[in-house]
Simulated assay, not measured.
Amino acid sequence: MNTLTLNAGRITALGRSELTLLVRNRATLTLALLMPLMMVFVLRSSLGDSEGAQAVGEATLTGGIGMVLLLVVHMNLVSSYVARREELVLKRLRTGEASDVEILSGTALPAAALALAQIAVLTVAGAAVLDVATPRNPLLILAAVLAGVLLLAALSAVTSSFTRTVETAGLTTLPLFLASVLGSGMFAPVDSLPDVVASVCELLPLSGVMTLVRAGWSGGAAGGDLLGAGLTTLAWIMISVFAVQRWFRWEPRR
C-alpha cells in the first residue's frame, strides 16, 4: 500500500462522491434509514405489557446497535468496495494524489456516518417508545460504536478481497453476520451460553464491541470484563488492518 497519510479534504471529497452513489440507490437508502424505527415499533407492538419488558427492551436496543453496524457498515461496504473495484474506480483513484487509506476511508465515510445517525435515532427513539432507561454511560457506547465502525470497515475491505461480484457479497458477508448474531452477545450476554461455547464466542470479532455497548447502556460490568472486551476489539482491528494491507485487491479479479 501507499504511504499511510491522511488528508481530510480528499477523504471528504471521496466520501461526497460515494454518498451521491448511495443516494441514487433509493431502495437501499430507504431501507437503511427506516430500519431502526421499524425495529423499535415492531418490538413495541410485540412486547405489550409483559413482565420483563424493560430488560427485553434494553436487549433489543443494544442488539439493534449491533444490527445497524453489521447491515449498514459491513454488508453495505463490502458491496461498495467490490463495485468500485470492478468498475476500475479504485484503480483510477490510486493513480492520483490520494493515499490508499484516504481512498478506503472516503469510500467508508457515508456508510459510517449513516450508521452513527441510525444508532443515535435508535437510542433516543427506542428509549422513548419502549420506555427504557437512557444509557448510563453514553461515552462508553460511543467509543464502542466508533471502534465497531472501524473494525467492520476494515473487515469489509478484507471480505471484498474474496468477493468476486456484488451479487455474491450477500454470501461472503453471511458468515460474520450469523456468527455475530448468534455468538457475539447481540441479544443475550455471551456468558449465558455454556462455558466452552462462551469462551469461543468471546473471541468473535464483534463480541468485545457488544460487551462494551451493553456495559455502557446498563452498567454493572466488571473492570476486567471491560478491559478484556477492549483488548479483544483492539486485537481484531489490528488483525483486520494487517489483512487489508496484505490482501486487499485494487483491480478486478480475473
Score class of each variant (00 low, 15 high):
Thr60Phe: 10
Thr12Ser: 14
Phe248Thr: 12
Ala221Asn: 07
Met67Asn: 05
Arg246Gln: 11
Val244His: 01
Gly208Val: 07
Val68Trp: 00
Leu204Ser: 01
Lys91Gly: 06
Glu58Trp: 11
Leu151His: 07
Val213Leu: 11
Leu14Arg: 03
Pro36Asn: 01
Trp236Met: 08
Ala83Arg: 14
Ala32Arg: 13
Val124Met: 00
Ala144Thr: 01
Ala154Met: 08
Asn2Gln: 10
Thr134Ile: 15
Phe242Glu: 06
Ile11Met: 05
Gly224Cys: 06
Ala127Ile: 01
Ala153Leu: 10
Leu204Met: 05
Arg10Met: 05
Arg164Gln: 15
Val82Lys: 04
Gly224Ser: 12
Gly208Gln: 08
Met35Val: 01
Ser46Asn: 15
Arg85Gly: 09
Pro135Leu: 02
Val72Gly: 06
Leu61Lys: 06
Asn2Asp: 12
Gly183Cys: 03
Thr62Ser: 11
Leu34Pro: 05
Val200Cys: 13
Val68Asn: 00
Arg10Val: 08
Val213Tyr: 02
Ala154Ile: 04
Ala215Glu: 03
Ala83Thr: 12
Ala229Ile: 01
Val166Ala: 07
Leu130Asn: 04
Leu14Gly: 05
Glu86Thr: 14
Thr20Ser: 13
Gln245Ala: 13
Ser161Asn: 14
Leu174Thr: 10
Leu88Asp: 14
Val73Trp: 00
Leu29Asp: 06
Leu69Arg: 06
Gly208Met: 11
Leu140Asn: 04
Gly52Met: 01
Val89Gly: 13
Trp247Glu: 07
Thr211Met: 06
Leu6Glu: 08
Cys201Glu: 03
Leu176Asp: 02
Leu104Lys: 07
Ala125Met: 00
Ala8Thr: 15
Leu193Phe: 15
Met1Val: 08
Asp49Ile: 08
Ala98Trp: 14
Leu212Tyr: 01
Ser50Gly: 15
Val121His: 00
Arg246Thr: 11
Leu19Asp: 09
Val40Asp: 00
Trp247Ser: 14
Gly219Phe: 04
Val181Arg: 04
Gly126Ala: 00
Ala144Cys: 02
Val197Glu: 13
Arg85Pro: 12
Leu4Cys: 09
Arg249Trp: 06
Thr3His: 09
Thr173Ala: 11
Leu212Gly: 01
Glu86Phe: 08
Pro194Arg: 12
Leu61Arg: 03
Leu146Tyr: 05
Gly48Ala: 15
Glu86Pro: 11
Arg249Phe: 05
Leu130Val: 03
Glu18Ser: 09
Gly96Lys: 06
Glu251Lys: 15
Leu61Gln: 03
Leu21His: 13
Thr233Phe: 04
Leu47Val: 12
Pro135Val: 01
Gly106Val: 03
Ser105Pro: 13
Gly52Ala: 02
Ala153Thr: 12
Val23Lys: 15
Val213Arg: 02
Thr173Pro: 02
Thr62Gly: 06
Ala221Ile: 06
Leu6Trp: 13
Pro135Met: 02
Leu21Gly: 10
Arg44Pro: 11
Leu174Asn: 15
Leu4His: 09
Arg214Tyr: 09
Leu155Gly: 03
Pro36Ile: 00
Ala198Asn: 12
Ser45Tyr: 15
Asp225Met: 05
Thr163Tyr: 07
Gly219Pro: 11
Ser80Trp: 04
Thr60Gln: 10
Leu227Ile: 08
Ala98Leu: 09
Asp225Glu: 12
Pro194Gln: 08
Val56His: 11
Ile65Trp: 01
Thr107Asp: 10
Val68Ile: 04
Leu155Gln: 05
Phe162Asn: 14
